[in-house]
Simulated assay, not measured.
Amino acid sequence: MNVLVLHGFTSHPIRTMGPLPNLLRGAGFNVAQPTLPGHGTRPEDLRHVRWQDWLQTAREAYLALPEPRAVVGLSMGGLLAGWLAAEHETAALVALAPALGFKNRLAYLAPLLHPFKPWAYSTDPAQVAARQAKSPNYPNFPTVALTQLIALQRQLPRLLPRVRASALVLEAAQDDTVPEAAVQRYFSLLGSPHKEYRSYPSQHDMLLDPLAEQVSQDIAVWLKERLASA
């Protein structure tokens, strides 16, 4: 039983996935956790990365796993997971707070603003340090990288109806990044004949908040059931 786990935009590839990977391994799964290009190093490394680079890295890691294969993605990772499930005969798909939209509509100005506002957040050392103290994610990021995430968002809806894998979509009810409507749209577009929608009173980084252990356990149980039938 093999599972690809994909992190989100600006996320640390290991630390933002909380207890999930180790819990899956303890349940008997073989887990792959690729680092998507531009992540796990420094924010500047996102400047020249395209959304196709994220997809290709995820695709290569997925194809390196033996079948049956499942794919789990958080936020942007949920978009990439959906893409892979549309491309391949995936046994199961889990998307946590898939970032098919933003609560902050100003984010969609990034394609126009990035030449004039190169950083989405302040680079002031004090503010950077304060954000780093709260989260393992990048404390800021190049605005041009956000344009790549937006491009991925716009490509995905045409692919989701092709997904036939059993699917579990998790909404973070206290999400300050992705609106409920975007998660529901992702779910409704899925062509999966067997799909389930669950809501948790969680923040966007569902695997870092107090419910992370419960969310992880629920995913492991659900995957075990689906992959056993596969």
Results as ranks from 00 to 15, higher is better:
R154H: 14
A167P: 01
G73R: 09
A85T: 04
V49I: 12
V221C: 09
H12C: 09
V49M: 06
A165F: 02
A220G: 05
A172P: 01
T123K: 15
P136N: 06
A64E: 13
L23H: 06
Y197P: 09
A220W: 03
P19A: 08
E225W: 00
L211E: 12
A133K: 08
G191W: 10
L208C: 01
H204A: 00
Y108F: 09
L170T: 09
V128L: 08
H12D: 15
L112N: 10
P43D: 12
P13I: 04
A61Q: 09
S135C: 03
A129M: 07
A27D: 10
Q33F: 11
V144T: 15
A145E: 11
P157Y: 01
L23T: 06
K195V: 03
L84W: 10
P115S: 11
E44C: 13
S166Y: 00
D218C: 01
L74G: 12
T35P: 12
A107K: 14
A230F: 00
N137I: 14
Q52D: 12
M1D: 07
L36T: 12
S135G: 04
P13K: 05
F187W: 13
P157E: 03
F29Q: 04
Q214V: 08
F141A: 05
P66K: 10
A70N: 13
N140E: 12
V94D: 01
P157I: 01
A126Y: 08
P37A: 12
Q184D: 12
H48D: 15
Q214L: 06
Y62F: 15
A91H: 00
P19W: 05
L113C: 11
L24Q: 08
A133M: 04
F29C: 04
L146N: 07
L159R: 15
R226M: 02
W54E: 04
L149S: 07
G26F: 10
F29H: 04
V128G: 03
P21Q: 06
V72M: 11
S166I: 00
L113R: 05
P136H: 06
A173M: 10
T57E: 05
G26Q: 13
Y138C: 04
R69L: 09
T16M: 15
G78K: 02
A58I: 07
T123P: 04
Q148K: 14
L46C: 08
T90N: 06
N104V: 10
P161Y: 09
L211K: 06
M17A: 11
Q52G: 06
L146F: 09
L168R: 00
L149E: 08
Y108S: 06
M206L: 05
W119C: 11
G78I: 05
A130Q: 12
A97P: 01
P115L: 11
L156V: 13
L84V: 12
L20E: 01
Q203I: 10
L20F: 02
Y138K: 03
M1Q: 08
L211M: 06
L36D: 12
